[in-house]
Amino acid sequence: MRVIKLTIYEIIFIIVCITINLFKNGMGLERLLLPLIIIILFGNLFCKSNLEIKKNREFIYAFILVFFLYMSIQGYYDYTNVSKNNYSLFKALLIQLPITMTVFAAYIFGIKIKNFNWRISLTSLLLVLLVWLSIEILPIIRYVRLNSITDLIKLIIINIPIKIYYPSLVEEVIFRGLCFSGLLAIGLSEDKSNIIQAIVFGLIHILNYEQFSINIILLIVPQIYIGYLIGKIYINTKSLTPCIILHALLDSI
Rank of each mutant, 00 (worst) to 15 (best):
V82G: 02
P167R: 03
P167D: 05
G110S: 04
Y70E: 00
V128A: 04
D151H: 04
S72P: 11
R119D: 06
I73H: 03
Y107R: 08
I157T: 07
P167C: 09
T102I: 03
S72L: 15
W118V: 09
L94D: 06
N159M: 06
A105K: 05
Y165E: 06
L89A: 02
G110L: 10
M71R: 08
I160K: 09
Y76F: 13
F109L: 05
S168D: 02
T100K: 05
S83V: 07
N115Y: 04
A105T: 13
N159E: 12
N81V: 09
I113Q: 07
I135P: 07
L89G: 02
F116S: 05
Q74E: 13
D151F: 04
S121T: 13
Y143R: 10
I137R: 08
N86L: 11
L138R: 13
Y166W: 15
N86F: 13
K91D: 12
Y87H: 10
Q96D: 13
P167A: 11
Y165W: 14
T100W: 11
Y87C: 15
I111A: 09
Y107W: 06
Y87I: 14
Q74S: 11
G75P: 11
L122Q: 10
Y165I: 12
A92R: 04
I156L: 12
L93A: 03
A106R: 01
T80Q: 05
Q96F: 15
Y165K: 02
D151Q: 14
F90K: 13
D151S: 09
G75E: 01
L97N: 10
S121M: 00
K112W: 04
V131C: 01
P139G: 09
T102W: 07
M101Q: 13
V128G: 05
S148I: 02
Y79P: 11
I99A: 12
K112Y: 10
Y143F: 14
V144G: 03
Y87S: 10
I149P: 02
P167M: 03
S168V: 08
G75N: 05
I157Q: 01
V103D: 04
T150N: 09
A105M: 01
P139R: 00
P98I: 02
T150H: 15
L126K: 05
Y77H: 04
P161F: 03
I156R: 02
S72W: 03
S168M: 03
I73F: 00
T80P: 10
A92P: 01
V144L: 07
Y79F: 15
Y70A: 02
A92K: 07
L122K: 09
T150K: 15
K84N: 12
T102C: 15
I135E: 05
F116I: 03
V128R: 00
V144D: 07
I156D: 00
L130F: 12
I149V: 14
S148M: 08
